[in-house]
Amino acid sequence: MLLDDALVTLNRAFGVLRRRNVPIEGLALHPSGTAGVSRLTFVLKADAATADRVAQQFHKMIGVRSVMVLANEDSTTEAQR
């Protein structure tokens, strides 16, 4: 996810994860390469529909530039279970 590099925006994003009880396994914050924009990556152990629901909550957040859901081996298995 790309979002404004402002503490309050990051705080709001983490708040969405906490408030929606999103099962987070890992979290990483990096500069995005664009001034004023951070890249936030988090690992979510959930099925594809849950991941999409979380992504939709971020899409409507002010300060969020883009959100991508990337499936990996684990999340694929999870979705098929």
């Binding site: 529909a49 999409d52 629901r53 939709q56 909550q57 899409h59 409507k60």
Partner: peptide, 8 residues
Amino acid sequence: LDRAEIGK
């Protein structure tokens, strides 16, 4: 109106 509500 809110995409996040659809299917929630």
